[in-house]
Nucleic acid binder design. Structure first.
Lengths: 222, 222
DNA sequence: TCGATTTTTACAAGTTCTTTACATTTATTT
DNA sequence: AAATAAATGTAAAGAACTTGTAAAAATCGA
């Protein structure tokens, strides 16, 4: 299914219940006992969903929420707050801070699963293409390398998506110019610039993924 | 589109879902409720892709897989295993036996479609011509000898593609000059140079593949 | 307006193409 | 068959062209 869920939760029993239930549903799941180990993993490999306890030993859950939501590239990560604290304040605050849902402890595991499934169904609109370890999602306009979100600018995304749609076949400079500016501009080095940025962001400095076809254009190498 | 997909699946509901979704995508689709009726159809009209359930009423899915993969002429048929059985064994075995992908039930139909689309994009025969053990791919601007990629420069590629289009018939120097520079340049040794490079890159130093027709031009030797 | 993005500039680096000069092969003439 | 002429093969050099790159300038969008 290829859907990764992290939980941050200092109660090992709850973590265990989540693990069993979510893995049975076919999700990839990892739990973390504190905020710091979670954040470190989060930056290494960004999950699709986070189940976030607000009461953690080291960092406030709301701080984690703020940290994630500060960066636009993480907009697609669903964050669900799990909290024992019944104060309405918390709920409102959490949603204000950018959480996508709020579930009160103690929760019914079946209900939790069904709410998660519902979200995933809505969330997976899988209009994606993957080459090597790089995935482009045409719906979200997002790109991941090894599961980690890569932030691209508009033009970079457009060129990369053209390349992905074309695959191994050559995409000529002329076609890129036509698509981006509706005309040819043979003298300009703009496309090269964007290709360079793409290669840098995708750690492809030698052009092993985005191949140059001398005198013609570019193509992907599988 | 001209892409034929078979499924072997004893669950009529799943078969129905597949049928609706795949036909909407423009694929030609047939489903079979058991292994024997599938195999019989398979030999009558071989499909491009097979969606194979491992748990069938009559034959084991793995047997079907082995049967198909035994024959080299079916190498191009993509086989995707659909299985409810989560045992890793199954997955590893299936891929070992020559399946191209493995999708677990219950699967998300949208995800399945997107994975099929991705495979089809990559699989659909390219715009290629083959002589002897050399294949030219007009879309990629690439050439393979015994399946190994040969890097050609622009002019080399142009001349070789002219030769491939002409086949055994002679391609005159005059024609090459006309095509490459729009004029004749009888004094120049440039074409000879490119022919030499081509022969070197194609390991054809004696000109057994690209024959010289003295006083006229060049032609391919089948 | 400010910050981010895009484009231009100017040069560097890299690749391909052409020429040159001579060698070799093939055809023609004697 | 030998000599000659014509066509093609070949290696090397550098000319011509294409692409890479960093930084500055212009433009765009919130």
């Amino acid at each position: 299914m290829d859907y990764l869920i992290y939980s941050v939760e200092d109660d090992k029993n709850i973590a265990r219940i989540l693990e069993v239930a979510l893995k049975r549903e076919g999700y990839e799941f990892c739990h973390f006992l504190d905020g710091n180990s979670f954040l470190s993993a989060f930056y290494k490999r960004t999950p699709n969903m986070v189940l976030l306890d607000m009461m953690l030993p080291d960092i406030q859950g709301s701080e984690i929420l703020k940290t994630i939501r500060k960066e636009e590239r993480f907009d697609d990560v669903e964050i669900i707050i799990l909290s024992a604290n019944r104060m309405v304040m918390d709920k409102v605050d959490g949603l204000d801070l950018g959480a996508d849902d709020y579930i009160e402890k103690p929760f019914d595991i079946l209900e939790l699963i069904s709410r998660i499934n519902a979200k995933v169904r809505r969330h997976i609109k899988n209009n994606t293409v993957t080459y090597k370890n790089i995935e482009i999602d045409f719906d979200r306009h997002s790109v991941r390398k090894d599961g980690v979100l890569i932030e691209l600018t508009g033009k970079e995304y457009l060129i990369l998506s053209m390349l992905f749609k074309r695959g191994e076949k050559v995409l000529t400079r002329e076609e890129i110019y036509q698509a981006l500016w509706g005309q040819s501009a043979v003298e300009s080095r703009t496309v090269d610039m964007h290709i360079k940025s793409l290669r840098r962001k995708l750690s492809d400095s030698k052009g092993q993924f985005i191949k140059t076809v001398y005198g013609v254009g570019y193509r992907l190498e599988i």
